[in-house]
Amino acid sequence: MPEWINVIVRSLTLIVFLFFLVKWLGTKQLSQLNIFETISGIVLGGIAAIHTMDPTTNFGYAIIAMAIWFIVPFGVEKISLKSKAFRDFTEGKSTVFIQDGKIMEDNLKKEGYSTDELLEKLRDNNVYLASDVEFAVLEPSGTLSVLPKRENRPLTAKDLGIKLAPTKEPQTVVMDGKVLLEPLANLSLNTNWLETELDKMNISIENVFLGQVDSDGQLTVDLYDDKIAVAEPVEKPLILATMKKCQADLELFSLSTENSESKEMYERNSKKLQHAIDSITPYLK
């Protein structure tokens, strides 16, 4: 057998073999790999490289070596899923760098971090003043996780006491001008509904590049032709506006009537409606 055929066969076999080994080892990102996994990855690649290039080596040995370099990290990963102590040993523990706003100099020294490196890591997290940090911890993967002090954290709706309507994930129902039936069915809608909604917006389905439906059943579209303006969904703002108008009307009626019974009825309903508006506003935004 000519040597070049040998090289081709070896290469193809190793590519397939390596592909499955990497697949079984898991789909962690490169930066999330611990030292052990990184090294075994490099060694697997190295073995594969040597044995594809050199036809004189024993191909069986290549398979054995790769199998071992696969089985050991694989086993380690499975055991570390079960045992916390083993995990701490193989993957390393995190180190606290800043606690209660105070820098732990001893821990910095232990991990071999200089003050400059700590500041650099803090800047990575958009923190420029070390005193803004309540707590910071160096993860085993080498990234620094930072918890800023309460007043330096971004303001949330919870802080402001604003009630927000919960939303579910939107579904994509039109892609490249074609209707996707499964997402539509997930929302218990059908193509008839979609056609009606598109008719309301005055556009044909062929012109739709992307169409999505949010959890409240509102359709938003992007068209191929960017010159055509698409109407924003108005259903919910319209309801809210009508409610406000009716509330104002009722108040007006209660002021203008002289019949005390009607006056009382208008007032009561106006209050009821105001209460309804307050409670539904977050959902109609």
Partner: peptide, 17 residues
């Protein structure tokens, strides 16, 4: 308004809404 709210209640996927 009542009819509009009825439609929204049917269309929404979220139990709380």
């Amino acid at each position: 308004i009542e009819a509009g709210l009825g439609i929204l209640a049917h269309k929404t996927q979220d139990a709380e809404s």
